[in-house]
Design a protein around this nucleic acid. Structure first.
Length: 311
DNA sequence: GTCCAGGATTCAG
DNA sequence: CTGAATCATGGA
């Protein structure tokens, strides 16, 4: 894909400034898996059926697209929350009273939850279990390259459920999916007959959505929380992965807490934008800039109250 | 060689 | 219900 005719770089107006380090974390920090940094420091990637380039210029964020893609600017504006809805939610997080969240938020100012397509988020996080971000990118790129429909500039979209369900075993194996290939096929088989699945799921409450997602093969609590957060814009969803377990243990002193307990703690402590808080903590933990707990190991999970079955 | 990765599933107790 | 074993693959 060497000869792509790009539009000139143009300013991308967002509600708040996004430093280059935050842009990199946002595009390559484990939310989406289809962005690549070019040798000149700019980013190019695919989301939905949109191909675009983004960079942090001296005068702010800039974008470009393959010539002729007229919808790219609007798609980018939505993808990056140009309207600023998350800026207000971020301001309302309890960072004033929570030094850990404050440090994480200061480390990546302007970090936002990407507003991804549900299909893209589900494929990405079906590949994510027990894998590192760099390797998830390889898997998703291979799926697009081998099974996706061509887009502008030699890029490819992600394959639909039918293409995934019908894919040769050898093709999937060549994508380095490992045992996740069965997850992908199973979910593809379940959803290929429901072309409107994303809109149906979007009509559910968040608890219902998480439950519906967990019924899909290869989707457990953590993957469901990620798909709800990144694919369905449920900002209150609080995914708990190994990094968050580590961060909540070391920075909040919540040693020994199980993921489900940490998830509830996160939702209660951080509120309606808990998922955004989670992303700050996740990024800060990976960057190694989270402060340690003031009282290490002081807190133990209280025993879960036994829930009585109701008639 | 060992350990771990933005976990889920299956099975034993 | 909870906890442990198992699952492919690649990089450190």
């Amino acid at each position: 894909m060497g000869a792509v005719a790009w539009t000139p770089w143009r300013p991308l107006r967002l509600a708040e400034d996004v430093p280059a380090a935050t842009l990199a974390e946002q595009l390559d920090g484990g939310q989406a898996f289809r962005w690549r940094r070019e040798s000149d420091g700019s980013w190019q990637g695919v989301f939905g059926d949109t191909v675009a380039g983004v960079r942090a210029g001296p005068a702010g964020l800039e974008w470009r697209a393959p010539a002729g893609l007229s919808h790219a600017e609007a798609a980018l504006a939505r993808y990056l929350d140009a309207g600023g809805a998350q800026a207000r939610l971020s301001a309302e997080l309890p960072w004033r009273s929570d030094p850990v969240l404050r440090a994480a938020r200061d480390a990546f100012p302007g970090l936002r939850i990407l507003r991804q397509d549900p299909h893209e988020a589900l494929i990405g996080f079906l590949c994510s279990s027990n894998k590192r971000i760099a390797q998830i990118r390889v898997m998703v790129a291979a799926l697009a390259e081998r099974l996706g429909a061509p887009l502008a500039g030699g890029f490819r979209a992600l394959p639909g459920w039918a293409a995934l369900a019908d894919a040769d075993e050898a093709v999937l194996r060549a994508c380095s999916l490992g045992y996740r290939a069965a997850f992908l096929r199973g979910t593809a088989s379940a959803l290929r007959a429901r072309p409107d699945w994303a809109r149906e799921f979007a009509g559910l409450t968040t608890p219902e959505l998480l439950e519906a997602l967990c019924r899909l093969p290869g989707v457990g609590p953590k993957v469901a929380a990620c798909v709800a957060l990144f694919g369905f814009g449920r900002l209150e969803s609080f995914p708990v992965d190994t990094w968050v377990v580590q961060a909540m243990g070391s920075a909040y002193g919540l040693h020994g807490w199980k993921p489900a307990q940490l998830e509830q703690f996160g939702r209660v402590h951080f509120g309606p934008a808990a998922g955004l808080a989670q992303q700050y903590l996740f990024s800060a933990a990976r960057a190694g800039v989270l402060p340690a707990a003031v009282t290490p190991a002081a807190t133990r999970p209280r025993p879960r109250s036994r829930r009585r079955p109701r008639a």
